[in-house]
Design a binder for these strands. Sequence first.
DNA 1: AGTTTATTTAATCAAATGATTAAAAATATA
DNA 2: TATATTTTTAATCATTTGATTAAATAAACT
Lengths: 222, 222
Amino acid sequence: MCAKKNLPIDISTEEKIKAAAKKLFTQKGFSATKTRDIAEEAGINLALLNYYFRSKQKLFEIVMRENVILFIGGMIDSIKNNQHLTFEKKLEILIDRYIDTLLANPDLPFFILSVSHSGHFGGDEKDPLFNSMKELRTAFFKDIVENIQSGHLKEIHPLHIISNMMSLIVFPFAAANLLKARTGVSQKEFEKLMLERKKLIPVWLKAMFANPQELKIIKKKK
Amino acid sequence: MCAKKNLPIDISTEEKIKAAAKKLFTQKGFSATKTRDIAEEAGINLALLNYYFRSKQKLFEIVMRENVILFIGGMIDSIKNNQHLTFEKKLEILIDRYIDTLLANPDLPFFILSVSHSGHFGGDEKDPLFNSMKELRTAFFKDIVENIQSGHLKEIHPLHIISNMMSLIVFPFAAANLLKARTGVSQKEFEKLMLERKKLIPVWLKAMFANPQELKIIKKKK
DNA sequence: AGTTTATTTAATCAAATGATTAAAAATATA
DNA sequence: TATATTTTTAATCATTTGATTAAATAAACT
């Protein structure tokens, strides 16, 4: 009955199901994805889905968790592993990584918006993932507040900064179909433009939120 | 059999269904919304849904159409009815209206992203709505290109400008749950911050895309 | 009023869907 | 090899779900 008494010699079935589920759930969401679609995509018997994952819901939760980790993992790394760098530098690294991740997983932003919108991602207190997010938020806020106090950033509610940063990075991917249709650019061009944004977004953020040099000095003095 | 031989004296049943459908479809999307949920929300017999709207699909298309109109209607107005104003002024008006619309319909952005993501909104050539969008796009592009040529805007791909404008306006609403959870702001605060953005977004856009005054003059001369 | 038409209801259908079962096949273990 | 265990399969179940029907009620019309 149990799928995991011994180490799985052939991991492929379980992995095939998860990969198929990830593809379809990420593309079409929970309700629009049918277990039979997943089975077909994975090329396995329908019953194996329940054999390995108990239920559609459980499978979805595993996929969701992996997607959330993929989505915020890069952020956590960029912030945590570069404490010594300036906020500006950290952001540059974060943006670069993020856009690579999104180019490789273009459906990810919509999936994340989807689960947060539907409340599917509750955010369990005991969940280590929940704690990682909390830590990330704390670290990020600290950076922002410090940079405001030191005069490097304008005085403004941190939500605006976080929101605009996320917007500029993530939104084009979430709205890719809309933008491509409306502007008539091809997929190739679209990807090229997204790569351009690696350099542009840091410049834009600075244009929006950095204090002019003079003020920075004045503020530091008093 | 036909629901519309005479003018409907009592429009309420049909309207009640549509209102319930709009609420649920907009909140949860097509697949996650069940016809029985709609019937219950509307307080009517399930059969009436099919009596008035033939099918779930048809009802969804009507709701989608109304939502799309709501979403881009304000944009079309702002651009078309203010041809005499500068691009900058037009944008200010557009942003102001848009944020009001989104505060009143906070689920709208996610719904629009959702249908464009799933390809539910095909964009029928014969559809007048499709043409409106096309006109809007043309008018917008024209404005942008003109302002680049006159030196008011930096030389940059129009997609970046459109994308960033949409991002800054729309994304916070699409990611509201995510942002609120991550920054710990309440609904009240969130709405206040969104109102703030009416003034902030034009400033930010200018900071990102406007040419410094000197260059403007130089470019005009040659 | 009486007749026709439109609306509403309860019951039901057929297909889709998530899940289970019992037996077969494959694999590991003794 | 014989036995036990794990994996896979086809068949089936029980609900859910979108849709229809026929009868009942309400409204409009003559």
